[in-house]
Design a protein around this nucleic acid. Structure first.
Lengths: 197, 197
DNA sequence: CGGATGACAGATATTGAAATCTGTCATCCG
DNA sequence: CGGATGACAGATTTCAATATCTGTCATCCG
């Protein structure tokens, strides 16, 4: 189906794999399917990725990186740390919720993939905590936040808000009072961050 | 096997069901097994519980109530709200972690059961938030906590600490730095609760 | 020669027939 | 009469045979 004329890049394989995962789901998506979608033999795919697991991991990383990249802008902005933190957490929540709500099947697929690739997820979380650390450090520098160890504080903020970004809770994000819950937790967290003044 | 002489109470059925679930796991535990363990026909079990789902729900409730009961003591104590809250959250975490660590298979079984009985879990969470509300209200009354709406604050505290009591995270509880993470979140939450004074 | 191929072995998944289970109810027993 | 029984129908699960997939590699082609 796909043009054989084009050069077979790693990138093209990843795109085809995403498409196959979208169509067939995580359980039925095979390397043979990916090869078929690309119009090559499955042996060729194995020339670019040592195993099926490695291929899936690469797709997972790409997907996680999209979120990280989307948020990095907010973290780097030059605005009041408190509103920046609010916006960052709200954006993270909104992004996850949109992904989950718009295409539940695809989201379920990525839930399986992230479950398979704990290491990639760990790295993703580290990157997100890095971004949070930047914001919190800025708050400490301007005196609006108190944090003996900004990175530890960032971890705490990330874990305390897990309900609003961890895919395990995707089901809860459909409930009508989830926004209220988010605001309640955000208030508590921001109170915990603020300098006693 | 079991004595037929004893009267068949709902309680005895629940005990037998727990035992069957422990032995066979959630997927293979059947009503026929429960009846066999009790030395009665399965039709008799259906006289006490309308469906298999109702039987499982009753077992789930019993299990959840054990945790609620164990914690109610701490909530009702007459001590400084801050240490009481610390102890309550630590006790909740410790209880869950012990259950998960001591008998992972049984814990996995109850994870399946709680997934089946979202309603029972909802009620359980309500009870736990009730207990938290009591502690927070006490703190507001003595002036050490600030909370315009103590129940909303209690919800926020519960959700912010989800990582340390939600069975979905059981896997993480084995990591060595989980204690540190708990302390970090607890610090943040307590800072958020304290009155500015 | 460098990259693509497809046959192959062992592992995994699918399928459909047989076994078991759930829930009901007419019947039995103390 | 009140509670227990077990036969039964339809739904679900198990199991073993069959098909497909993963990963390798000798071979092929431009």
């Amino acid at each position: 189906m796909a043009p054989t004329s084009e050069i077979l890049t790693t990138e093209r394989i990843l795109e085809a794999t995403e498409e196959v995962l979208r169509r067939h789901g995580p359980a039925k998506a095979t390397v043979v399917d990916v090869a078929r979608a690309l119009g090559v033999s499955h042996g060729t795919v194995y020339r670019h990725f040592r195993t099926k697991a490695a291929l899936r991991e690469a797709v997972t990383k790409r997907w996680l990186d999209r979120t990280t990249d989307a948020l990095s802008g907010i973290a780097a902005e030059d605005r009041a740390p408190e509103t920046r933190l609010r916006d960052w957490l709200a954006a993270l929540f909104a992004a996850k919720r949109r992904k989950s709500g718009d295409d539940p099947e695809l989201f379920a697929t990525y839930k399986v993939l992230t479950g398979e690739n704990v290491t990639a997820v760990g790295q993703h979380i580290t990157e997100l905590v890095d971004q949070l650390t930047v914001i919190i450090q800025a708050g400490v520098d301007t005196g609006v936040f108190t944090a003996p160890d900004p990175r530890a504080r960032a971890r705490a903020v990330f874990h305390a808000t897990g309900r609003f970004h961890d895919p395990a809770y995707a089901q809860e994000w459909e409930r009508p009072d989830i926004e209220t819950e988010f605001d309640e937790v955000l208030d508590l967290v921001l109170r915990g961050l603020r300098a006693s003044a």
